[in-house]
């Protein structure tokens, strides 16, 4: 436990030193603020509050941003230390290999947590306090923050898996970008294409919904857009949500599985690695 805490603290301090934390806070805070301020306009006629509406737009944005930030943090985590030669020394210390992975994970999650809390949280707080918006819909907003963090965790774990599998940093960077493209852009495009090509509706609604569960970003979307009725309405997804019929526990469970599976695989591969 001690070793994990030391490694996590080191990773977090490193994030502060090289301005990763600051950059992530500014990025998330600025986009959230912009969307919150713009979000009050379309809210006018509907029953949704500004926070509810902004959950919809922030969800669509987070689905791109958080995986990107998470992968950029994570791709270097192991391969970078191998390449620099610092891993060799670290492993002669009283630290188990799984603790190295766990410690880095905790440190990187602390960075993401700080960025989401200060960035998203600060933007919402600012809107509520100074722009005279109601606090209606804060539960949905908090859920969005929590699930965004979970989405980040998924991609930190996937980034580690890349980092432990390749031999060079540059390969890891490339693989991370490909991973991002596949899970965040291409998979959805594929689904969309499938839907469009399927004139005769041979693919049923059920199968389509299940296909969505194979992508962590879609799971994240479903989680946020269907969790609260007000948000669903703002997103115009009420119908989809009702028909998809996935409960929150299933969606949450899937997200956790997306974190734990790559993380466990990383530990197992790292454990067997000869140095």
């Amino acid at each position: 436990m001690r070793a994990i805490a030391i490694l996590a603290a080191n990773e977090f301090l490193d994030g502060l030193r090289n301005r990763w934390v600051a950059a992530a806070i500014v990025l998330l805070g600025a986009t959230a603020l912009a969307l919150l301020l713009v979000g009050s306009a379309p809210a006018g006629a509907t029953r949704a509050s500004a926070l509810d509406v902004s959950v919809v737009s922030l969800t669509s944005l987070s689905v791109y941003l958080l995986p990107l930030i998470a992968l950029l943090l994570a791709f270097d985590a192991l391969v970078g230390e191998f390449e620099r030669g610092t891993m060799l020394l670290l492993l002669t210390y009283p630290v188990a290999r799984w603790q190295v992975v766990a410690g880095k994970f905790c440190g990187h999650m602390l960075i993401l947590f700080t960025a989401v809390l200060v960035g998203y949280g600060g933007a919402a707080l600012g809107t509520v306090l100074f722009a005279g918006q109601g606090v209606l819909g804060w539960q949905a907003y908090l859920t969005m923050m929590g699930s965004s963090l979970l989405l980040g965790a998924v991609f930190v774990a996937l980034g580690y898996l890349v980092s432990v599998l390749v031999r060079e940093r540059s390969t890891a960077a490339g693989a991370a970008i490909v991973l991002w493209l596949i899970f965040v852009v291409l998979y959805d495009l594929g689904l969309l294409g499938l839907l469009l090509a399927d004139h005769e509706q041979r693919i049923g609604q059920g199968l389509f919904s299940i296909l969505m569960l194979f992508s962590p970003s879609d799971t994240y979307r479903l989680l946020n857009l269907t969790a609260f009725e007000a948000v669903s309405q703002a997103a115009g997804l009420a119908g989809v949500a009702a028909r998809a019929g996935f409960g929150i526990p299933l969606l949450l469970g899937l997200m956790f599985l997306w974190v734990l599976a790559p993380l466990g695989a990383t530990m197992a591969i790292f454990h067997r690695r000869e140095l």
């Binding site: 030669g85 210390y93 009283p94």
Partner: peptide, 26 residues
């Protein structure tokens, strides 16, 4: 252990590097 051509995290100060390893070693 002193590895061949030892490397450290360049952004850290000498004192910070040693403190990090000291904590790990207890």
């Amino acid at each position: 252990y002193l590895p061949e051509s030892v490397a450290f995290h360049g952004a850290m100060k000498g004192r910070e590097v040693l403190a990090f390893y000291a904590r790990l070693k207890g």
